[in-house]
Design a protein around this nucleic acid. Sequence first.
DNA 1: CCGTTGACGGCGA
DNA 2: ATCGCCGCCAACG
Length: 112
Amino acid sequence: MVKRTYEVIYETVRKIPYGRVATYGQIADLSHLPGRARLVGYALYRVVEDDDVPWHRVINAQGRVSESPVRYGNDHLQRVLLEAEGIPFRPNGSIDLKAYRWQPDITEFLSP
DNA sequence: CCGTTGACGGCGA
DNA sequence: ATCGCCGCCAACG
């Protein structure tokens, strides 16, 4: 039984702890999909509401929430959810990745 | 079997 | 700093 690619991505996202964030590229790497950050974006677009994937903890490499017209306000919701977890935004709308990026134990992500 | 659809990231001008 | 360009690709109808 081969896991669907997006399911692998969702499993990685589920491991991001409360109060921390990860970038699309970081999730791709941890999911053994090196260099395919965009694929993570595609996957998160398809997350449904009744899923338990903490999609709001994934931001872009600039430390910002990725905005898009097709999200119809969910991008703003993402910021609200992160602030509710104690993650502050700078005046320019970015998050301090140095301070709030998830730093997983890499031994947990060795081979597929 | 197509064609469409999208939350990225890195690099150069 | 801020653009544009381009590689990247699974899911769905």
